[in-house]
């Protein structure tokens, strides 16, 4: 028992100091009005203020589209990855892993260099007298930016699932007379569908929580939930930390629920198998 205590001591201290206590205080603060008394006013504001509702709508819109598109591309990418040699796989996985680190300020800046107002794409289309309609600082542009880290992330999650699919299944079903489409619908899809749902929830949660990329790309002009929280913390005169706590509490609750549901889907499937 004493060794166990010693082994877990540093991690427990860390979790208590910078996870449990702050989250607990955050939840309590979300129920406080600016003078410190208990109130539900913050929650009421979240669901009635038009500006806040717009932030929620933007966040949901960007995240659903970006994670759905990224999931489809990641499924194709993960399948393709399983077909390559072991050495290439290792290299590509490391690179996909690293591209997550490139997200944020460097990614936003690269996209501005490529598609921004003074960017290379504009320079090239101007030189070739083409019309250019891509606006990187818009909702569409932001969604496009998200795919640059959501696709590699999706591939990282889905690759192990595709690696486990047995190539013999295909031969067996072919011998038994199944057409490729039937094989895909009745054998492959039931195996990968729960995983796809789980990965979708993770990609969605990841997109919902993205602050750095969108802040670096558009400043505060496209307001999402993380951007809103950032302004409420950082905004000088308009700073309202209890309200930021309310948004953060709601965010953590909803995301925990969604990720938990996604996790249940794959686990129940695994237990049934």
């Amino acid at each position: 028992m004493r060794t166990r205590l010693k082994v877990f001591f540093p991690l427990s201290i860390l979790v208590v100091l910078v996870l449990l206590l702050p989250i607990l205080i955050m939840v309590i603060a979300s129920f406080q009005s600016t003078d410190g008394s208990f109130s539900l006013a913050n929650y009421q504001q979240v669901i009635t203020n038009h500006y806040y509702l717009k932030a929620i709508r933007n966040s949901l819109g960007i995240s659903v589209v970006a994670s759905a598109v990224s999931l489809i591309i990641a499924v194709i990418g993960a399948w393709a990855l399983t077909r390559l040699s072991q050495k290439t796989k290792n290299i590509l996985i490391t690179l996909f892993n690293m591209s997550a680190s490139f997200a944020g300020v460097p990614l936003a800046f690269s996209l501005i260099i490529l598609f921004g107002n003074a960017g290379v794409w504009k320079a090239m289309t101007a030189a070739m007298h083409l019309k250019d309609s891509l606006e990187i600082y818009s909702l569409t542009g932001t969604t496009l930016a998200f795919t640059f880290f959501e696709i590699p992330l999706g591939i990282m999650f889905l690759f192990p699932v595709f690696e486990e699919l047995n190539p013999e299944w295909r031969e067996i079903s072919a011998v038994l007379g199944a057409k490729p489409l039937f094989f895909f619908k009745k054998v492959i899809l039931p195996v990968i569908l729960p995983n796809m749902i789980e990965v979708f929830t993770l990609l969605f949660a990841n997109a919902m929580g993205t602050y750095e990329t969108i802040y670096a790309l558009t400043g505060n002009s496209i307001v999402t939930i993380p951007i809103l929280i950032g302004t409420l913390i950082d905004g000088g005169l308009t700073a309202n930390i209890p309200l930021a706590c309310t948004f953060a509490t709601l965010f953590a609750l909803v995301m925990t629920f969604i990720v938990w549901v996604g996790n249940r889907v794959t686990r129940s499937k695994r237990e049934a198998a």
């Binding site: 996870l19 955050m26 929580g209 602050y211 929280i229 953060a248 953590a252 995301m255 990720v259």
Partner: peptide, 10 residues
């Protein structure tokens, strides 16, 4: 995923 940086920092 459930508590990203922006939530933790709050």
């Amino acid at each position: 995923f459930t508590i990203p940086g922006i939530i933790l920092v709050t």
